[in-house]
Computed example of a mutant assay.
Amino acid sequence: MAYFRYQAATATGESTGGVVEAADEQALYAQLRTQDLFLLSARPEGRRHHLDHRIALSRGERLEVTHHLATVLGAGIGLLTALEDLVAHAAPRQRSMFTTIVEQVRGGGDLSVALALFPLAFPDTYVQVVAAGEATGGLGERFADLALDLEYQIELRRQVRKAVAYPLTLVVAVAALVVLVFTFVVPQFAPIFEQAGVNLPLPTRVVVGVSHFMQGQWPVIVGAVVVGVGGVMVARALPGGRRLLDRLLLALPWIGALRAELAVAAIAHLLGLLYTAGVGLLKALDLTAGVVESPTYREALLAARERVARGEPLSVAVAASGRFPSLFQRMVEIGERTGELDATLARANRYYREEVPRVIESTLGILQPLLLAFLGAIVGGVALAIFLPMYRMMEVVG
């Protein structure tokens, strides 16, 4: 691998340049084309320190960097000064990355091209928003938008984890209770009932039968659980398996509605961010589809993208998929009709940012009582199965 100092042109004819690592000029040309740049000239720059493209930033770390750049650029301080400050305060494992970015920008390259060298730290959507800010001269505003986007993502993940934690705790508690009751509690009473010689009622016979099965077939039960968990993990690693699991989750009551709402919210949020920043609609649809977690909604968005590429309005394209709510379709249609699609997508972004927490809270409010009722039914059913034969034994003795 060698380093090349290059000059390139954007799709709009603007000039840009920088220093990048590539195997040869042909590889350099292919690399720049992925960023919608056209190579004009290139010359070897000589050997430099090796670029570690695997350097990554967590969402929290990326938010700190973005906040810093938004604040410094918003205050009118130069970009190089802002980047050099990042180098001075960077963690050791990230300092080489920021040093490379500073070198690229100081050499006349675009910041977006420099950020693209580190895809694990700055994903493609982030880079495209920065590139749009460079093209329009509003780089500080775009970093402010990206900071809001990252804050939203972090807060949404926190809310989802919080919403999942309590039901998951209840499920674990129910499973532990079932194991405890049927393997330790019921076996203590079963010999007493058998010695008493009373005719056991149906609930008791069912509970005793389940207890005997769990005691005698526990290797089969453990094996089935391991195979089931392993099967889900393997399915998640395969495209077809992820698609199947996603459709199963979307078909579940309440949980499916929440998953669909989260997917539409993510699409509205990212599409609004990219299009408002100045990224072309087709490119914005591509980038949004690339980061949507739901395979079903990713396919729906890519299908909509193909329809838009053929000349159909976006509102018609999303309606044809059958996956997007009518409110989202109407908002897009109004934006297209008035020529203010960017403003409409921004409003959709704000709407879903406020709506998703309400949907999470509503779904949690439904699931928690159901899980508690299920837990109570298990405890009550086992208690009834134990006390019914004891009551009959007391009648016989009496």
Rank of each mutant, 00 (worst) to 15 (best):
T16L: 11
G13F: 07
Q26F: 06
G60V: 05
R47H: 11
Q31T: 12
F38K: 14
G18C: 11
R43Q: 11
D52L: 04
Q26S: 11
E45V: 01
G13R: 06
H53C: 00
Q35F: 14
M1W: 03
M1N: 09
E25N: 06
A9L: 13
R59C: 00
A42H: 12
G17L: 13
T34D: 15
T10K: 13
Q26E: 04
G18V: 04
A22Q: 06
T16D: 12
E64G: 11
L37P: 04
A2H: 00
G60Y: 01
R33P: 00
Y6Q: 08
L39I: 08
L32E: 10
R48P: 01
A9V: 15
H49P: 01
L63R: 09
V20C: 07
A8F: 05
S58V: 02
L51G: 02
H49F: 04
G13L: 08
L57I: 00
D36E: 14
Y3Q: 02
L63D: 09
G46Y: 01
L57R: 02
E45A: 13
T10P: 12
L40G: 09
E21Y: 05
R5K: 02
G46N: 00
T12G: 09
A22T: 06
S58K: 04
R62E: 04
D24L: 09
R33G: 05
R47V: 15
Y3R: 00
R48G: 10
R43F: 09
T10I: 10
L28C: 09
R62P: 05
T10R: 15
Y29T: 03
T34W: 13
A23R: 15
E45L: 00
I55L: 15
T10Y: 12
R59M: 01
A9G: 09
R33C: 05
G17P: 10
R33I: 01
Y3F: 14
L57S: 02
T12D: 15
M1C: 03
E14L: 07
L39C: 07
T12Y: 11
R48L: 12
T10G: 15
G46M: 01
R5M: 00
F4Q: 03
V20H: 10
E21S: 05
A9E: 13
A22P: 12
V19N: 08
R43T: 06
T16C: 14
S41T: 14
Q31M: 12
A9N: 06
R43Y: 10
A30F: 08
L28G: 07
E25K: 06
R54P: 02
I55T: 10
H53G: 00
V20F: 13
T16W: 06
G46K: 03
G17Y: 04
A8Q: 10
L51W: 09
A2F: 03
L51Q: 02
P44D: 05
L28V: 01
S15A: 13
D36L: 09
A27E: 14
L28N: 13
A22C: 05
G17A: 15
A56D: 01
T10L: 14
H50V: 08
A30V: 13
A11G: 05
E21T: 01
Y3M: 05
A9P: 03
D52Y: 02
A42E: 06
A8I: 03
A30G: 08
R62H: 13
P44W: 07
A42G: 09
E61S: 02
T10E: 11
T10N: 10
G60E: 09
